[in-house]
Amino acid sequence: MAFENPQQATAYWRENIALVLKLLAVWFIVSFGCGILFADALNQIPLFGFKLGFWFAQQGSIYVFVVLIFVYSRLMARLDAKYNVHED
């Protein structure tokens, strides 16, 4: 057992899940939300030459995806260190 006690293991896993769910919520909102479900409404708003819904569907969501993974990687490294389960 790498954790000091089972409570630590549960707490670590709970924090991990909470983080993943938060990031997945962002993932869902930018792609399925802004890019698909609300695209028509957002298309009323111009962003330079783009309609906003169209921009999210073909550009914006992809940029957010990339950022999400790096944020996850950074925050998880911090979480691993907090519970002392990181790799050496």
């Binding site: 993943v20 997945l24 698909i36 169209f54 569907a57 969501s61 992809i62 995806f65 999400l68 996850y72």
Partner: peptide, 21 residues
């Protein structure tokens, strides 16, 4: 046109699932 977004989001968004889950 717009419908092409299924490929753009579909073939990139999967990496978020892959990395997180």
């Amino acid at each position: 046109g717009y419908d092409g977004a299924v490929y753009l989001m579909g073939w990139t968004g999967g990496y978020v699932l892959l990395a997180l889950c």
